[in-house]
Write a protein that binds this DNA or RNA. Sequence first.
DNA 1: ATCGCTATTAGGGGATTCCCGTAATTTTTC
DNA 2: GAAAAATTACGGGAATCCCCTAATAGCGAT
Lengths: 233, 233
Amino acid sequence: MDLIDLNAMPETEARFPAFIDDLCDKLELDYASYVAMPPLSGDVRYYANYSDDWADHYAQNNLHCVDPVIHKSVNSIAPVDWQRFDRDQNFNLVFNPGREFGIPNVGISVPIRGPYGEVGLLSVSRNCEKSVWSKLKRKIMGDLQVAAVHMHDNVMQSGILPNVLSRPALSSREKEILQWAAAGKSQQDIGDILCISHRTVEVHLRSGRSKLNALTTAQAVGRAISHGLIYPG
Amino acid sequence: MDLIDLNAMPETEARFPAFIDDLCDKLELDYASYVAMPPLSGDVRYYANYSDDWADHYAQNNLHCVDPVIHKSVNSIAPVDWQRFDRDQNFNLVFNPGREFGIPNVGISVPIRGPYGEVGLLSVSRNCEKSVWSKLKRKIMGDLQVAAVHMHDNVMQSGILPNVLSRPALSSREKEILQWAAAGKSQQDIGDILCISHRTVEVHLRSGRSKLNALTTAQAVGRAISHGLIYPG
DNA sequence: ATCGCTATTAGGGGATTCCCGTAATTTTTC
DNA sequence: GAAAAATTACGGGAATCCCCTAATAGCGAT
């Protein structure tokens, strides 16, 4: 199976919907969607070939807050088959009205995580019998995984998700001191460890906070960790 | 391609090496290894079918600290083909001696991330011409992705990685207050927000620190985030 | 049903730490 | 060569930490 190579396409955002369309063609699917979610739960990026009607209905009713497919997938390692939600109240709440829009209730969602804690979710679906779906799923699972990784990799590299890419540049000393702070050391401790005044330690913490737009050191440590600048200690 | 279903096997650790062996058989590979790395950079879990000689040599020389395949993969979304390291000094430092052990220098590493920041790395390799390798790679990429996800999912569910699973149980109030602390609020702020005394806030922070084995609130926030108990604010 | 454990609430007080303003020297960058 | 950033450091006031005690409520166990 040869899917579109996003790296070989002009670096416009239009290549992502094109990839979605191509995916549906090649894998005998009706609909596909991709969502990129930064760890700070800020703005998401969304591509799909659902009808505008369904997309509007989904967005206007904030169905993403209810949709159990989302909740399950962002906490899962393996792909999540929608059949798991057969008797799920929230699933039916979201997808029963979807039938009027021609939305299938069989499908699968493939979560992909990146090194910054962001999650990409590639969901595909098709109007067919469940037995047909089971066979199709087995056949295309490998390609789906590859497609999800490829899509997420390229969306991340495109820098479209601002929260993830705008990683504040901390100086090495700032990172070093923030790392010790994350390890539970006091300013005095850190000063002793690095053989500098605890006053100096505080200055680095201050500039670190400032660069991370953090009000307290605790917030700065949390943000630095979530940005991958330091490790939990 | 039908790989072993780890869910259908007895829940012993022996099924993981068996999966590695089966993977090599079915995908025409010589060697495969899987490493699970918790976010707290603590103890890793490792399965492989390399010769004991090579494994000992790798471990005794702490080659994982030098191995560029590891470094690149844990920061990558997409699989990392070892061909990328053709002229990499560290790669040759690690793998040139590997030839004496029969270790191939063509291979690929597939990183998989879970919701707790842990990384699983499935690496496979084979002794063959680069042209043969390129063809094989294209053929098995989908299965490799599926295998990596399957392996990582099952290792995580087995609870073998203690750091990830031993998630301290914070009370709802403790999590709530720690969440506000991660959002940069002071104790007084939090007291005002929750309409309780700032003294009470401090008690919850103290018990939270205690449960997380943290010396400072900053460390507690970092640990709580890395454990997925709260979100970065 | 009483005992014990935990959660949640709250205060006093001393020691420590944090945070802000200021500022010098060195290094890096343009 | 000048501008910007990094690294070093002090003083003072505010905030937090950490020890103590203590009451009320809930929940599982003996």
